[in-house]
Deep mutational scan, measured.
Amino acid sequence: KRPMNAFMVWAKDERRKILQAFPDMHNSNISKILGSRWKSMSNQEKQPYYEEQARLSKIHLEKYPNYK
């Protein structure tokens, strides 16, 4: 399994927050909201998630050096 990208790292927690506020919301609607919110974020706001992506990718590479 591939490591999560920056959007997926961010969306994991955000999806949970949306589901708590709107438990009956369909997954497709949540995904649209998440995509819209991510697009509206500045690069500075996204930076911690890109850093986490890099950390996860490094761990993945160490654990699975032959993964293609």
Results as ranks from 00 to 15, higher is better:
Phe7Tyr: 14
Trp10Ile: 00
Pro48Thr: 07
Ile33Asp: 01
Pro23His: 04
Ser42Gln: 05
Arg16Gly: 09
Lys63Asp: 13
Ser28His: 06
His60Gln: 09
Ser36Tyr: 01
His60Cys: 10
Arg16Leu: 14
Asp24Val: 01
Ile18Asn: 02
Ser28Ala: 13
Ala21Glu: 15
Met8Trp: 04
Arg55Trp: 02
Phe7His: 04
Met4His: 10
Glu14Ala: 11
Lys68Ala: 12
Pro48Cys: 04
Val9Tyr: 05
Leu19Val: 11
Ser28Pro: 02
Met4Ile: 10
Val9Asn: 05
Trp10Asn: 03
Arg2Thr: 14
Asp13Trp: 00
Lys46Ser: 03
Ile30Pro: 02
Asn66Val: 09
Glu51Val: 09
Lys58Cys: 07
Ser42Val: 03
Pro65Ala: 12
Met4Cys: 07
Phe22Gly: 05
Asn43Glu: 15
Asn5Leu: 01
Gln20Lys: 13
Asn43Val: 13
Ser40Lys: 06
Tyr67Asp: 15
Arg16Phe: 08
Gln47Arg: 07
Gly35Tyr: 13
Gln44Val: 11
Ser40Pro: 04
Ser40Leu: 08
Glu45Pro: 00
Met25His: 02
Lys68Val: 06
Ser31Trp: 13
Met4Gln: 06
Arg2Pro: 13
Ile18Leu: 12
Pro48Gly: 06
Gln20His: 08
Leu34Asn: 01
Glu45Ala: 06
Asp13Lys: 09
Leu19Tyr: 02
Asn66Met: 09
Pro23Ile: 00
Gln47Pro: 00
Tyr64Pro: 13
Glu14Phe: 15
Ala11Trp: 05
Lys32Thr: 07
Asp13Ala: 03
Asp24Ala: 07
Arg2Asp: 15
Met25Gln: 02
Glu45Gln: 07
Leu61Ser: 13
Arg55Leu: 03
Gln53Thr: 10
Gln53Asn: 08
His60Tyr: 11
Lys63Ser: 12
Tyr50Ser: 03
Glu52Phe: 01
Ser57Phe: 08
Glu52Lys: 05
Glu45His: 03
Lys58Glu: 14
His26Asp: 15
Glu52Leu: 03
Asn66Ala: 09
His60Met: 05
Lys46Cys: 02
Tyr67Glu: 15
Tyr67Gly: 14
Asn5Thr: 15
Arg2Asn: 14
His26Ser: 15
Asn66Ser: 10
Asn5Tyr: 01
Lys63Ile: 08
Tyr49Met: 00
Asp13Asn: 05
Asn29Val: 14
Pro65His: 10
Lys58Leu: 09
Lys17Ala: 07
Ile18Met: 06
Lys17Tyr: 01
Lys58Val: 07
Lys68Pro: 10
Lys12Asp: 08
Ile18Lys: 00
Lys32Met: 07
Ala11Val: 03
Ala21Met: 10
His60Val: 08
Lys58Phe: 05
Lys32Glu: 13
Ser36Pro: 13
Asp13Thr: 09
Pro23Cys: 01
Asn43Tyr: 13
Pro48Trp: 05
Pro3Ala: 06
Val9Lys: 02
Ser31Asp: 15
Ser42Glu: 04
Trp38Arg: 05
Phe7Ala: 02
Glu62Met: 06
Arg55Pro: 02
Lys1Arg: 09
Arg55Gln: 03
Met8Thr: 15
Pro23Trp: 00
Ala6Ser: 04
Asp13Gln: 04
Ile18His: 01
Gln44Ile: 10
Tyr49Pro: 08
Lys32Tyr: 06
Ser31Arg: 09
Gln53His: 10
Asn5Cys: 10
Asp24Lys: 10
Trp10Thr: 02
Glu51Ser: 04
Ser28Ile: 09
Phe22Glu: 12
Lys46Met: 00
Arg2Val: 13
Tyr50Thr: 03
Trp10Lys: 01
